[in-house]
Design a protein around this nucleic acid. Structure first.
Lengths: 242, 242
DNA sequence: GTTGATTTTTTTGTATACAATTCTATTATG
DNA sequence: CATAATAGAATTGTATACAAAAAAATCAAC
């Protein structure tokens, strides 16, 4: 059972000094980004401890971090659950992302070196490959990582840290509100963006990025009409029909 | 000794469900904002535990939170210290703040109710009072709270959370790089800003806010020349003189 | 059978004990 | 005397035990 982490514990790849809670954090984070953990899922400390083969102490630390990034909600005395933003909250998150992405895009256009842009392109190719072979989960995660790499290239750690939080929250939002339709094939938009960055066309790059975010927000307005979390609205038809 | 927190533990004012680490977190946070804790200060877990009358578990949680906000630096196996941003990092932080404050200011101009603006004004009056009576620490903290209240008024929790981190980091920067001169009398600029918000003059408000941030950044460029953390530069005069 | 109170179980919050690591001071060696 | 090596103390990382709270299950009354 605890082979899961035993193999990781000794996995000192890249000499990175990952502490145990870093690993647990990353695993849960990825699970959320890949939508293997649905919004609202309860995150039991002991169960997670058994899964990863560590004590609750470590789990707690990881959850605390995720909580600070608002990816999970920590309810005092009632444990942690994967966040499930309301439509209102989702709008606020997307708005915040517009603010950050605009700044990031501008910085990247100004400062990016071509080797870095190459890395961006590689990432999008991977992303495309995932979607082609039907691995939607990994595709969505890589799509998020594209935006995180952009933020890294912007060379501004505070913005990057904020972006981490926003990207994962957006992933949750997509999980919640994107209808079954196989949309979210964003990689072509990513390619366009890379082209604009290569040409250092700041205006176009920002425009493309905003357009990119419009797509997420469009889905929200769509769902706003049907599936609502407003109980009265949900049952009004039922009542009038009776 | 542990009367310090015993009194706070039972202090259920406002019915706020503050858990113990919330309280410790807030105390350390305030101490940093008021500059009672200087940048670079080592934060020993056991000592803090004794001061607040709680176990290391609680201290650790609080430090972990502060670490995520980058207000303290958590060095694996080597403990936590109050962050001491380099000039380069300081510039990045101020840049990030420009991005956030611009968005916040626009949102506030669009949506603020007059009762909220009144609260803003009250806060600035307190701030002014602090500086008049020479309580620089509290003044700086209130100055920060002015910006946090703005972010609250913007009604965007993710932006607010980010702003929390940035404001405290800026406070650290001021602590580090502001020369003895009794500058940082920002409250008059806050008054101007409030006027612009009252008139819903978005352009002017944003312009004032950017100008406000210029003042912080100016200090950095000034100090950039003299007090440097570049050892070679510091001792070059000494060496040539010999 | 449904509602409400009470007990039991589960889960979270906190303290503490021990292990692992880093820091400090002492001693040995050139 | 300076440097290196080593032993000891101090500090952090992790697991675990117990207390407090919440959730679930049981039972009673209607």
């Amino acid at each position: 059972m605890n082979q899961t982490l035993d193999s990781i514990k000794t996995d000192k790849k890249r000499g990175s000094k990952k502490t145990q809670d870093d690993i647990v954090y990353a695993h849960i984070f990825d699970a959320i980004l890949e939508q293997r953990l649905a919004p609202g899922t309860k995150l039991n400390e002991e169960s997670l401890g058994e899964i990863f083969g560590v004590s609750r102490t470590i789990i707690r630390r990881a959850l605390s971090r995720l909580g600070h990034e608002q990816v999970v909600v920590l309810r005092p005395n009632r444990g942690a659950v994967v966040a499930s933003p309301t439509i209102e909250e989702a709008r606020q998150i997307v708005f915040a992302r517009r603010v950050v992405e605009k700044a990031v895009t501008e910085l990247v256009c100004e400062n990016a070196e071509s080797t870095q842009v190459d890395k961006l392109k590689k990432l999008v190719e991977e992303e495309q490959a995932c979607f082609s072979r039907g691995d939607r989960g990994a595709g969505i995660r890589l799509s998020g990582e594209f935006h995180l790499l952009m933020a890294e290239m912007a060379n501004n750690p505070p913005l990057l840290s904020f972006q981490r939080s926003l990207v994962s929250l957006c992933s949750l939002i997509i999980a919640q509100y994107e209808s079954g339709a196989k949309s979210h094939c964003s990689y072509d938009e990513h390619y366009e963006l890379i082209e604009a960055i290569r040409k250092r066309d700041k205006n176009k790059a920002v425009r493309l990025m905003m357009h990119h975010l419009d797509h997420i927000e469009d889905k929200l307005s769509l769902d706003d009409e049907n599936a609502s979390d407003d109980l009265k609205a949900v049952f009004s038809g039922l009542l009038s029909g009776k």
